[in-house]
Simulated assay, not measured.
Amino acid sequence: MKLESIRREYTRAELSKKNADKHPMHLFQRWMKEVLNLNKIDATSMSIVTNGADGFPDSRIVLLKSYNNEGFVFFTNYNSQKGQAIAENPKVSLHFFWPELERQVRISGIAEKTSIEESEAYFHSRPFESQVAAAVSEQSAEVPSRVYLEEKFDALKKELNGTNPECPKNWGGYLVRPVKFEFWQGRENRLHDRIVYELKDEDWIIKRLAP
């Protein structure tokens, strides 16, 4: 099959400045509720883009764990590639793609660490095995083999004997405070709707972009 022959039309919904909320987080909440009704498993998956030390942008999928008017929260190992990149440059981008609703949301913002208390509370809310995995994984570091990881996992699990591990000091959350949103709604004939919110002096300025 030729890739250029794969096409689809977008006919599900429309987005205008009139039916967009004044605050972008309210529109995001509305869209998130709609996609959660269709797909609770993947709705919170988001790509986070950081700027690497080599000058190249790095993108990977993480899971959104909470959000409010302050921003978006996810958790990771602070010594990971993304953690090191954020320490050097806290400007990041988030990207949600919801094909069920023919929608995308792009967010630019500044990442900052959550409090130790918030990080520890979420860490201990995770399944026991996930806590153990986070405790033994030196995320992004080179390892000799899969067996090496499994042996470390089994050893700590045996040592803990059912008790929860401590939250590693190099593990926790980030809050991404948004400064820009772009809401994309697929439309017929590739005349997609693109509504942008930009933060200017604590006010959100709304504009439409050409597709």
Rank of each mutant, 00 (worst) to 15 (best):
T76V: 05
S66L: 08
A87G: 06
S59K: 07
T50I: 01
N51V: 07
T44Q: 10
V73N: 01
S59I: 14
G52N: 13
Q84G: 04
E70Y: 13
N51I: 04
K17A: 13
K22C: 14
N37Q: 13
D54W: 13
T50W: 00
P57D: 10
N69M: 07
S80K: 05
S66H: 12
K65T: 09
D21P: 08
F75Y: 14
R60N: 06
Y78I: 10
F75N: 03
M32K: 07
G83S: 05
R30A: 14
N79Q: 15
R30N: 14
G71T: 04
R60E: 01
N19E: 09
D58G: 06
S45C: 10
K65Q: 10
N19S: 05
T76Q: 06
T44L: 10
L27C: 09
T76W: 03
N37Y: 14
M46L: 10
S80N: 02
M25P: 09
N69C: 11
I61T: 15
M32W: 04
S45I: 09
N51R: 07
S45Y: 07
Q29I: 11
E70M: 15
I61P: 07
N77M: 05
R30Q: 15
R60W: 05
D54E: 11
N79T: 14
N77P: 02
I86F: 00
V62D: 02
V62F: 03
N39D: 13
D58Y: 12
T76Y: 06
M25T: 10
V49F: 02
K18C: 08
A43Q: 02
F74I: 02
V62L: 04
D54T: 06
F56T: 12
I61F: 13
I86K: 01
K65L: 08
Y78R: 04
H23N: 15
K18L: 13
G55Y: 06
E88Q: 12
G83R: 03
A85L: 06
L38C: 04
D42L: 08
T44D: 08
H23D: 15
S16P: 05
N37S: 14
Q29Y: 07
S66A: 14
D21L: 12
Y67R: 02
V35Y: 03
N39W: 00
L38P: 02
V73Q: 03
W31G: 01
D21A: 09
I48M: 08
F56N: 12
H23R: 15
A20P: 05
K33A: 15
P57A: 09
L36V: 06
S80W: 01
G55N: 07
N77E: 07
D58C: 11
N51W: 13
N39I: 01
S47P: 13
E88C: 06
K17N: 11
L63K: 05
N37L: 15
D54V: 10
N69A: 12
G71Q: 01
N19Q: 07
W31H: 00
N69R: 15
A87R: 11
I48F: 03
V62K: 01
A43P: 00
D54I: 08
Q81C: 10
S45Q: 12
G83A: 03
Q81N: 13
I61C: 12
